[in-house]
Amino acid sequence: MSALVELREATRVYNGGSARAALDGVTLEIGLGELTAIMGPSGSGKSTLLNLVAGLDRPSSGRVVVDGADLTNMSEAALARFRRQRIGFVFQFFNLLPSLTVRENVLVPAQLAGMPAGKAEARSRELLDRLGIAETAGRFPSRLSGGQQQRVAMARALINSPALVLADEPTGALDSATGVQVMELLTELHREGQAILLVTHDAKLATRHAERVVSLFDGKVFDDSRLSRSGAAAGDLVRVVGQEVQR
């Protein structure tokens, strides 16, 4: 199976199907190492799609296969195990555990997965170094800035070397400068071969970094475009129009 993520006619209805389906017969494939953006307004189904891909929810009908694992009918416990081994999460509001130090936060997925302590420690140190927050290791999240917290979250997401990183509005709670830094880190990871699924409503963010933009609308895939590096010149894109100056 060459695709990393495969959804086939995936549907998710709530409230016994009387309401509109949150996700309606979506068929989608995402390949290894791709940086894909899922776009859409609220209510479009992008959070539902994210839940299904992450194994946080099961489809009402259809199939969901991620990294070779068929999530469609997995038990809660099996889904949990799948998540900690194959998925890394980066959330809009960071979602670090406030009562754990930075180091402990990063270690959580590794410890849940039963990684040997020494190996986990080494890996976490490596990641914290890489993300430039090594000196915060002993501090509690409440003492960190937004950007630092998101980087801790990224370290946590990467500690188990997941097949897929799910970034859900990763810059939503950050100011623009910090947001840029975080996106640069993500892009760097992508360049090293990490598959990333970026969920956002921000078109500029999506198109700037992703090579493929999937647009959802009303629970269906509305548009699925690969964007090229067209190298268009400024003049093809922008024309500043003059006006008559009345005197």
């Binding site: 198109t207 933009v213 647009s215 548009d223 964007l227 590096r229 067209s230 190298g231 894109l237």
Partner: peptide, 14 residues
């Protein structure tokens, strides 16, 4: 829409 998206990407590059 597609045109808009591609345009955004290109503008970002510029």
């Amino acid at each position: 829409r597609r045109v808009c998206l591609q345009r955004l990407r290109d503008l970002a590059a510029l």
